[in-house]
């Protein structure tokens, strides 16, 4: 009689992360495009509203965050699209661990690949938009705390739309309303920092929103994937 070995949950998680990073490292242009889009959009604003540093500094938090939201929509589909096409998604649902764990691995990889570069170029964006120096740290913190929300909530949207041919525009329609609290809290935090007030309150709210998304999203993603793979 055949018997199967018991693999540990953590091992499966690690394998998924390793594989996805390896896959992504072989299609680098996909990773760069949203980043370039983000930089270009932020560059367009001074051209559109004029280069006056006082105006730019005032709208900087909103512009940077709206651009970050939009650019994250661009690369979001990658989260499950290829896996759906080649059957790896199906196999992921058949792994001997809770699907939520695998979903968390996918979310983590997506965050590492899309948010980390944004966090690295944040100073450049702040510089381009003339954001007062005392708010740079807060801007970075809002992005650090907020980008996991983009990956987690984004995963829900992608899980629901991945089997559709033209999911792209629909994805934004589904997700952007859900992300409004994030936009409000984040810009409020940066604006507080610009005004010299403590941004602790809105930062704590972003943190709470992030924890909520990361804990609840995997369940919704799992349900969405089960609909989509059928």
């Amino acid at each position: 009689m055949l018997t199967a070995n018991k693999g540990s949950t953590f091992k499966v998680f690690k394998q998924l992360v390793k594989r996805d990073i390896r896959v992504a490292s072989r299609q680098r242009s996909d990773l760069l495009n949203p980043l370039i889009f983000l930089i270009i959009v932020v560059t367009l604003f001074p051209l559109g509203v004029g280069p006056g540093p006082d105006i730019l500094g005032r709208i900087a938090p909103g512009v940077i965050w709206v651009s970050a939201l939009l650019s994250s929509m661009l690369g979001l589909e990658r989260l499950f699209r290829d896996d759906f096409r080649d059957g790896a998604l199906e196999q992921m649902l058949l792994l001997p661990v809770a699907v939520e764990i695998s979903v968390l691995a996918k979310i983590l990889v997506h965050w590492l690949l899309t948010a980390l570069p944004v966090l690295i170029i944040t100073p450049l964006l702040a510089l381009l938009m003339n954001l007062p120096l005392q708010a740079w740290g807060t801007l970075w913190l809002t992005l650090f705390l907020g980008t996991p929300v983009l990956s987690a909530a984004g995963a829900i949207g992608v899980a629901l739309t991945v089997s559709l041919n033209k999911g792209g525009a629909l994805l934004s329609l589904l997700l952007l309303p859900l992300l409004i609290p994030l936009l409000i809290f984040a810009t409020a935090a940066v604006e507080a920092a610009v005004a010299g007030v403590s941004p602790a309150g809105p930062l704590a709210l972003i943190g709470a929103f992030m924890v909520l998304c990361i804990t609840l999203a995997p369940f919704a993603v799992k349900a969405g994937l089960r609909v989509s793979v059928n």
Binding site: P177, L178, I180, P181, L205, A220, A223, G224, V227, N230
Partner: peptide, 24 residues
Amino acid sequence: AGAKAASILAIVGVINIPIIHYSV
């Protein structure tokens, strides 16, 4: 499948609505 997907989205939305309201 569409009905199930819409159900999931409606539930996600209803959890988020109080947060959206509060934030707005």
